[in-house]
């Protein structure tokens, strides 16, 4: 552990070294395969990336994907938030719905795709449903937990100072105390929404980044496939990191784990 902290000041040479190692291994694979389709040379991947960006293809595909992502996620978040609040506020409703919701959460989205396709079509609605479905449950279960776990002493204090209305209590006590859970749900949900977006664009009707990947894959232009895949994890990481940053921002006032 001590060695780690000693080196932590200047870790970037190690990053460079590690990245170089990855590049060398890749290039060895390229040499070994000797086939641009199987393992394209890194400079052809770079060239492909440049071609995709300079021609504006990546840009427009990304915009299309992001539009899908945010519409679907907004619907999922709003819906899951309200359902989660209802389930968390009423013990009976919570107990009644939780097993059902947990079961649906266990069914992989991908297995339901053919059915979703039949019901909602492969247009924007269908794709949006896929994105919304994939991010709905993490938000729901977290909001539910957050509302459920409101510290009862806080509610009691609120009651004793005259805050008796259900709605007022919700606004001033329950909602603020469940913020960390809601944010955790937001973070998990947006990560899964990216996956849902990719699934929707590959499986329903080709569109956005998904289309870019599949079309190039079908023509065995592997360098272009890799170049089009790269933005996706970056998008996922960026969104998750941004959510985590926001999460810390919102709950700076929390001292210790109140939720325990």
């Amino acid at each position: 552990m001590k060695r780690g902290s000693l080196l932590s000041g200047k870790i970037w040479p190690l990053h460079v070294l590690f990245a170089a190692g990855v590049v060398v291994i890749w290039q060895l694979l390229v040499l070994h395969a000797g086939n641009e389709v199987l393992f394209p040379n890194l400079d052809s991947v770079g060239a492909a990336l440049w071609d995709l960006t300079s021609s504006g293809k990546l840009h427009s595909a990304m915009l299309e994907s992001l539009r899908l992502l945010f519409t679907g996620f907004t619907f999922a978040f709003v819906g899951a938030f309200f359902l989660g609040v209802i389930m968390g506020s009423s013990k009976a409703i919570g107990m009644a719905l939780l097993p059902l919701m947990s079961f649906i959460y266990c069914v992989p989205l991908i297995a339901l795709l053919p059915l979703l396709l039949m019901w909602f079509g492969f247009g924007f609605t269908g794709r949006m449903v896929v994105v919304a479905y994939s991010s709905f449950f993490p938000v729901l279960l977290n909001v539910y937990a957050g509302v459920r776990e409101t510290p009862s002493d806080l509610v009691e204090v609120a009651q004793s100072i005259g805050l008796t209305g259900r709605l007022a209590q919700f606004r001033h006590v329950v909602l603020p105390s469940s913020v960390p859970f809601v944010m955790a749900g937001f973070r998990l949900g947006i990560g899964r929404a990216v996956v849902g977006m990719a699934i929707a664009e590959v499986f329903l009707r080709l569109g956005g980044i998904g289309a870019l990947i599949v079309e190039n894959g079908a023509r065995f232009r592997t360098a272009y496939v890799i170049a089009a895949i790269v933005p996706l994890p970056l998008l996922g990481i960026a969104l998750t990191k941004a959510a985590a940053r926001f999460e810390q921002r919102v709950q700076y006032w929390r001292y210790t784990a109140v939720s325990e």
Binding site: A198, V202, V214, G217, A218, V225, L232, G236
Partner: peptide, 12 residues
């Protein structure tokens, strides 16, 4: 790797 949706890796 964790953040890459696996569906898009199928061509590779």
């Amino acid at each position: 790797i964790y953040a890459t949706p696996r569906v898009v890796l199928t061509p590779l």
